[in-house]
Structures are given as structure tokens and as C-alpha cells.
Write a protein that binds this DNA or RNA. Sequence first.
DNA 1: TGTACTAGCCTGTATATACAACTTGAAGAG
DNA 2: CTCTTCAAGTTGTATATACAGGCTAGTACA
Lengths: 254, 254
Amino acid sequence: MNQAKPRYQQLKDLIIGRISSGELQPADRVPSENELVESMRVSRMTANRALRELNDEGYVERVAGRGTFVSDYRSQSHLLEVHNIADEIARRGHTHTSCVIRRSPQHARGEVAKALHVQQGTDVFHLLLVHAENGIPIQLEDRHVLASFAPDCLQQDFETVTPSAYLTSISPLQEAEQVVRASLPNRAVQEHLDMKDGEASLVVIRRTWSNGRPVTFARLHHPGSRYELTGHYTPPGTSRSTSSDVVQLEELRQ
Amino acid sequence: MNQAKPRYQQLKDLIIGRISSGELQPADRVPSENELVESMRVSRMTANRALRELNDEGYVERVAGRGTFVSDYRSQSHLLEVHNIADEIARRGHTHTSCVIRRSPQHARGEVAKALHVQQGTDVFHLLLVHAENGIPIQLEDRHVLASFAPDCLQQDFETVTPSAYLTSISPLQEAEQVVRASLPNRAVQEHLDMKDGEASLVVIRRTWSNGRPVTFARLHHPGSRYELTGHYTPPGTSRSTSSDVVQLEELRQ
DNA sequence: TGTACTAGCCTGTATATACAACTTGAAGAG
DNA sequence: CTCTTCAAGTTGTATATACAGGCTAGTACA
């Protein structure tokens, strides 16, 4: 079962490990090819392949003549771009504000326990907040977080740092699953988002993994008249941009 | 401006060209590394890099001991998986039926002309059909196709081959853009999809490019109570599956 | 002081070579 | 005829080497 991994993969795993453990921070310098040749006893071509693939995959950025540097996950594509609504709003030059409605410890049950793969009654934190763009509410975030993953969750000031940004600062998010639905909001959602009677809502249900297990489960409600999801698909190989082979989902205001 | 491309990239472009021109069909054998060494006068490592990257990008599949083969775009991830509702339904073991409501030549104007980047009055074809899963309507497809791209569009039997499948058979789709909205359907949409009063609809507006220009523009309406979009995100490098670094969007019935 | 230049490091690419593991088909043994 | 074995071709990986080109810091020079 435990097949010996190729050496270039071992190198990749090693560096990814240093990044996700926090030993290597964004913009930090990664050992150069020649340094890896010496310390790891590999040939330069093997080190080159490891670093080149990490570059293709967005973990690091390489500059000829300077070196290899850890990518800044926060301003990067992949998962995180999808997650932080404050960044999305800032990108369109608007101001983001948010208002915490509830922030409390809970015991997981029913849907939440099932989504997080934990026993009924496991400690979780429940967050409920409204995000606004230029003062207009556009997202009601209803999130459950595994308490063991983020013990100091309730001490955070989520009006300055979004839960999404906080969670990614703890540990890089590694996998996510989302479902998009259209529905009529219940009374509470409708009022929090200032929606008219009969207005449809766009609901994104997102579950995020870290280190192989789900750690947070969120329902994101948006007013259908003021919100949409846009995606852009590019086939692999046509563009040389670093994120050409991922789908970028962005929330855009109409 | 016109920098000489590296040789491995030239090899990739050459093979991609043969695939998209139709010279190489899905499951066809691609020249082996050693054949490329002889015919293209490159070293085996250069040929290896070209083929390996084409494999990583999903164009081809490589089997040690056998060779390199063109991927089957139709049953593959990337763009096409997203597009064909008949395949999605078949994948869950259900039966797909569709009913053509309208099929007519038109002159593009307004939103359609703008979306397709053509002058007002340009010839397009308008298709309107309902897709059903096990007899239950789940998608109203309202599509405009550039007449110059698919001249024999009106002769097709879209009840056996979906417009999406037909269009991809003409030319590989190269780029797509989509917007997801939640809204209340108008009377016509509501009736075609057998929706209850006050039921929200999930609308996907999709524009697809081929050879650098938009060729089709579709509005896909779904009943909110019976339909959802699911997406799964995997970061690059953790999984070895061929489509690990793309987001797969699938339509799933609740 | 300030400018020009160069040495040294870095990445990017290309080649030649080698060995391992896998697949297939053909030759040979029974 | 059937089974075994083996050779040839294929991909996968690893190494050593080479040269080109970008970047930077420090030195030499004016």
C-alpha cells in the first residue's frame, strides 16, 4: 500500500508542509534549486521539477534571477478567492461592513453534525452576521465552526476580519464543497437582507475541509435582486496565467 | 513581441492543434516520446515534458507500457461536463427527455447581439426547449446560436442530441462564462417547468466561446425546489486524479 | 559622490544517459 | 493447443551537464 513516492513529490510535500505549518510565511523565500541539491541530495533537475510544479499549482512564485517565494494565499486565486466576501467587495472599490447578530457556543446536531462528520452534541460555534456593500446588505452568513478547530473563535472581532479570513489564517483551507440553490427566504432572512416580499434568494451552502476533515459549514443567503455568482472557464493550456485552469467564482453585484 | 517559444511548448501546441483540428480523435494514439525524438529532433526529456504537461492539463492520458492517447472530451471534465444536461441525468441513472418548443431563425438584437459581439440584425438561431428527468421538467433552455457558426442548426433533432452536445460536436468549446441568479420566473417559464406559484427559479446564463469569439448564449431556467448546482474544489497537488485542479460543476437533483 | 560594470546567484530550458516498471505480442516449451 | 517466457516498446523517474538570461550587490572607476 505504502508505495515510495518519487523524490520530486517528496520535495513538494516537504515544502507544502512547511507552508501549511506556518514555518514558511507568504513572501518568504523557499530554498533555491541549488540549495535543495545540497541539502536534499538530489539533482538540480529534480529540484527544478518540484519547484516548477509548485509554481504551476500556485503554492509559490518563481522569479528568474531572484528566487522562489511563497505565494500570498490571501490575495490569490484557488479556494480563498472564492471565500472572502470582504475581498470581493474591496476589489470593486466598494466598502464592506458587517454586523454580528449572533455568536455563541452550541452543540452540533442534525444537519450540522452530519455535515461536519461529528457526533451529535460535539462543541461548535455558531456565527450569524450580515455583510453589506456600501451599506446595502448582500449576504447573511450563517456559519458553524468546529470548536476544536478554532478554540478562540468567539474572541474574534468579526466586524473587522471576516470569519472566512479568520479561518484561513488558522490553517490553509484544503478542500471545499458547495451547493447553490434558489429559494424563497424565510421571514428572518428576508428582514436581515432588506428583501422585498416575493423576492428570491440565492443560497450558497459551503462546507470546507482542513487536514482531511470538514471544519466549517456555512449557509450564505443573498438577495436575488442584488446578487449573482459569476464564473469564468478557461481550458487548460491556452492562457499562461497562474490560475488559468481553475474556475474562478466571484460574487458580483449587478 | 514575438518571443520564440520553448520547444516543449511548440510540441504541446502542435499536438493541441492536431486535436482541435480533428486530425486526432479521442482515444487516438499520440506519437510516443521516442517517435517525437526522431521526428521533431528533440531529446526525450523535452518530449516527456510536453506530453506530461498535456496529461496534467487533461488533453491526453498516458499509460505506462502502452502509450499516450487523446482524452475523450465528451465524457471528460473541463468545460463539457458542465454543459450537457443529458449526460448529467444519465450519470444518475435517470432518463432524459426533451421537448422542442421553438426553433427558428432570428435577427440578433439587444442583449443577444451584445452578448454575441455582433451587429444588430445578424443571423442567429433561436432554440427553446424543455429538458425533463424521468418525466419531470427541470430545465428550460433558451438559447441563441450564431448562424455562421452552425448553419445546419435548424435541421438537427434536438430531442435526441441536446443543443449543447451538437454544438460541441461542431467545434471544441474553448471558453465559457456563466452567471447564476435566483429570481422569480415569469408566467411562461413557470408553466413550462410546472412550478408552483411563488417558487424561485435558479437561472444560469451562459456564454460560450469558440476560436476566440462568442458563438452561443443561453439562459437556463431551473425550478428552485427541484434543482441545485454543486461544486467541488480541490487544491492542486493533493489528489492525483486528472481533474483535481478544476472545479466540477454538476447539476444535481435534490 | 555617483555611475558603470561585473561577478555570482537564480531560474528556464535543452540534452544525453540510465534504470525501473508496465504492457503487449511473439516466440518457444510442454 | 496452451501455457510460459521473453523481448521490445512505452512511460516514469533520476542524474549530470550545459548554456542562456534575469537580477542584485558590491567593486572599480571616473
